[in-house]
């Protein structure tokens, strides 16, 4: 008995038979959705983690117009629904400028939307971390001749990362589940797949499986975050 026929017997046991979709097909579809979910997740982190640092620095800039602009940006990104932001990116180019975007645009709109939104949340977490670093660290670096850039990259940021890890973990885990918002763009990530299967099969099962997979995903993320936290446990201040 190979893997998929074993899964199908479980499917039969759960009352899925005849012309209904086989459980292995369902898992295949959800699996392809999970791939997209994972992709959105990774791309968002790669984009938003560094962008958040820049926004935080802009927000704390002594150049007031920049600080204000970043303040407004953060407020808007956190103050409007991500789903709405995704739709604005998806349809804005056409309705505002009459631009015909290709069929791939939805993936771009999705990634850009997630990055811009999450960077705003990350920025505030970075800011809390940066502001918690004692002034003496900056002064010691200044007297030793470090430039401002060197001070930030070598002295401040590594300490900030350790301090903000728990708060970041919260956001990163929220992101795992927020990827499901991509369904409004017709990006067939896992939630969209589950929704489609559920509609065609008149079954709750795909939702239940999707929920378990999301949970498994977050457990992996929790595990990885824990590893990083342990790794940074070699010092305290």
């Amino acid at each position: 008995m190979d893997g998929s026929s074993l899964i199908d017997s479980i499917g039969l046991f759960l009352g899925m038979s005849g012309d209904k979709m086989q459980l292995s097909t369902m898992l295949d579809l959800l699996g392809s959705g999970l791939l997209l979910t994972g992709q959105i997740f990774i791309v968002t982190l790669i984009g938003a983690l560094p962008l958040g640092v820049l926004i935080a620095l802009g927000r704390m800039s002594r150049f007031k117009p920049l600080a204000w602009l970043m303040r407004v940006y953060i407020s808007f990104m956190r103050g409007t629904p991500l789903m709405l932001q995704l739709m604005a990116l998806m349809f804005g180019p056409y309705y505002l400028f009459g631009m015909q975007m290709g069929t791939d645009w939805k993936y771009w709109a999705c990634d850009i939307g997630f990055i811009l939104n999450y960077a705003a949340y990350f920025a505030e977490i970075y800011r809390s971390g940066i502001q918690s670093i004692p002034r003496g660290q900056y002064e010691a670096a200044e007297v030793l001749g470090y430039s401002r850039g060197q001070t930030f990259m070598r002295i401040v940021l590594p300490q900030v990362i350790k301090r903000i890890l728990p708060a970041m973990g919260n956001e990163v885990i929220t992101l795992v589940k927020d990827t499901s918002l991509a369904f409004v763009l017709g990006v067939m990530e896992m939630f969209s797949q589950a929704k489609a299967i559920a509609a065609s099969q008149v079954s709750m099962l795909p939702y239940i499986i999707a929920a378990l997979i999301y949970w498994g995903f977050t457990i992996v993320v929790e595990f990885l975050l824990n590893r990083v936290e342990k790794k940074l446990d070699y010092y305290h201040d």
Binding site: G136, E139, A140, Y235
Partner: peptide
């Protein structure tokens, strides 16, 4: 060079 009251070593 300067030596601070609170040392200000880089803890990491």
């Amino acid at each position: 060079g300067l030596v601070f009251q609170n040392f200000n070593l880089f803890p990491h």
